[in-house]
Amino acid sequence: MPKQIPNPEVAVKEEASLTSLVKEKMKMFFIKIANVIEYLSIVFRNLFTNKFEFQEFLKQCYQIGNNSVGLISITGIIVGLVLTIQSRPSLVNFGAVSILPGMVAISIIREMGPVITALICAGKIGSSMGAELSSMRVTEQIDAMEVSNTNPINFLIIPRFVAAAVMIPLLTLYADAIGIFGSWLGVNIKDTLSLKLFIAEAFKNLEFIDIFPAVIKSFFFGAVIGLVGCYKGYNAGRGTESVGIAANSAVVTSSLLLIIVDLIAVQITDLL
């Protein structure tokens, strides 16, 4: 088979099209960054300058709590149970089974509780915010709101974002409590330990520095879920397929950002 001679004209054209493609991608990337910055500046400006929609905020708090509490209860109890069952054999080998309640409590309160609660809420709340707002965009409800002299940022986005930022820490504390209860159940599979004594052992090793950063971290997790869910929904396209895209993108983006925020939070906590 004769060796194929590269055509210089084709090679130049391919290189040119590749360069223009990269340029286009770069341009789109920077446009997206600019859009996000503009969105955040509008949201925070409205948050501090316009009247706060308190009724809508309460409604969103109820929806976030009510929609997630069941799922968080089940997940929390399983996480506590599994963590205890998995850790116990290793601790028994070292004769350190007495530190099990404290160890599980610290890992749940510092990391497992906030991260698992946030990831569940990203799936449950983030997707619902993305889908709801994008469907309102598609069916012109957001336009109708504007015509009715209502600022959609103020009425739709700020209450959802603030409600998520307030409710996720509360749900995290609840998940922590349920997780510790699950851990007690796990301990009682092999041993017999009263709940009162288990809790006393668990909290003996806990300090303020374990709980406070976790709550602050959950607040940022909530803010990320609210802001991303609303951004994806509010800026969705006009077609019906945009609803699915917005919901999916809200979950993926917020989950990724949660992990990044967690990484940053861990580094900061480590310095304290």
Partner: peptide, 16 residues
């Protein structure tokens, strides 16, 4: 201006 104008949207745009 918006107080003077009513707008009936194509799909009615009622808040779900």
């Amino acid at each position: 201006v918006r107080k003077k104008i009513g707008f009936l949207f194509q799909g009615a745009a009622l808040y779900d």
